[in-house]
Amino acid sequence: MSDRQTLLYLDGVSVSFDGFKAINNLSLIVGHRELQAIIGPNGAGKTTMMDIITGKTRPDEGEVFFEGAIDLTRLDETAIAELGIGRKFQKPTVFESHTVWDNLALALKKPRGVFSTWFYHPSQEDVARLDEILDIIRLRPRRDALAANLSHGQKQWLEIGMLLAQDPKLLLVDEPVAGMTDAETVETAKLLKEIARTRSVVVVEHDMSFVRDLAARVTVLAEGSVLAQGSLDHVSADPRVIESYLGR
């Protein structure tokens, strides 16, 4: 059903809420170490698609497979996260009453059992890895600040840092640059490209210049299904895409 190149495989997925079809016969493939951007107008089903991949919403029909054989529609959020799918939300959600350090420490890939966490003590490698991530997301000076006190952009970066700490195989990143300055946006694009060298990244974004910076394959969603796929230039030239999204 899918070859080795494929990390994530969606086929014929549909879901409806009280008669409204949020996702309609959607098929999508994400390869290993692929950076893919997903664009589409509001209500195109981008967030619902992420909900389906991460187990928050069950599809009414269709198949969702991870690494060829793992049926994601049978698993819940926790199990899917454990498999190595990390998700950054549209609205940055970090643990506001924890420090930046604790946020990252919670995300760090470690046994997730109740008693393992109770008796957990960070090892030297753990501390080193967290310091490294702090440097990557440029929050080292703020490591003991409460996450609630970060700026919007910093929260976005912290959430990306938490994704890194999770060490996932696939990152789903929902609107990472909303509320960022232009300089930060450019940095974020760099960071995501860097990450995509070792793992797969799916980015949902509205900001076209950011998508251009990513230089990735673009998938256009509209009304719950794929409208066009290819390079940004290719899809921008597609008359259907202009009609449904860009032209307006």
Binding site: D76, T78, E82, G86, R87, F89, R112, M162
Partner: peptide, 9 residues
């Protein structure tokens, strides 16, 4: 729900 997406049961 965020905690759940981090892989905690």
């Amino acid at each position: 729900s965020r905690t759940r997406f981090l892989g905690y049961r």
